[in-house]
Amino acid sequence: MLKRITVRGSIAGTRRDLAGAIASAAEGKVRATTTTGPLSCVNDVLERLEAGRVINA
């Protein structure tokens, strides 16, 4: 299985910062925890994000 990710830009930092962040991810130093749910729950998720109630595992 091929897994390809394309980064088109960054709203924060320089190109060098972005290259460093991508290098850290490629080295396995970045871990993302995700949860999926129905689109009907999007407003609840945004409210929890705004209130700082999203748990980082």
Rank of each mutant, 00 (worst) to 15 (best):
I11K: 13
E27W: 04
D17I: 01
S24T: 06
S10C: 12
S24C: 09
A23I: 02
K29I: 03
I22R: 02
A26T: 09
G9P: 00
G28A: 03
A19V: 09
A19E: 13
G13M: 03
D17S: 08
I22E: 00
K29W: 04
G9M: 02
S24W: 08
L18S: 01
I22P: 00
T33Y: 14
G9Q: 01
P38I: 02
R8F: 13
T34I: 12
K29C: 03
A23Q: 12
V30P: 00
P38F: 09
T35E: 15
A23V: 05
G28T: 04
T14P: 00
V30L: 12
R16Y: 06
I5K: 12
T34G: 06
D17R: 02
L18D: 01
S24E: 14
T14I: 02
G20K: 11
R16D: 15
R8K: 15
A12P: 00
R8V: 05
L39S: 12
A25R: 04
T33K: 07
P38K: 13
G28Q: 04
I22H: 00
L39T: 13
T35S: 14
S10M: 05
L18T: 07
G37I: 01
S10W: 03
T34M: 10
I5T: 14
G13Q: 04
T33F: 14
D17T: 04
A12N: 10
A25C: 08
A25K: 06
D17K: 02
G28F: 04
G37C: 07
T36C: 08
I5E: 12
V7F: 07
D17W: 01
L18C: 04
R4L: 11
I22L: 15
R4Y: 07
G20M: 09
T36F: 15
A23M: 06
P38H: 11
S24H: 12
T36Y: 14
R15N: 13
R15D: 15
G9I: 02
A19S: 10
A23D: 08
A21E: 08
G20F: 04
T33L: 11
A23C: 06
R4P: 01
A12K: 13
V30M: 09
L18Q: 01
I22V: 15
R31W: 05
E27M: 11
G28N: 04
A25V: 07
A12G: 06
T34R: 15
G20V: 03
A12S: 12
G20E: 13
I22D: 00
I5S: 09
V7K: 02
G28D: 04
T35N: 09
A26E: 14
R15T: 08
T36N: 08
S24G: 06
T6W: 09
R31P: 00
T14W: 02
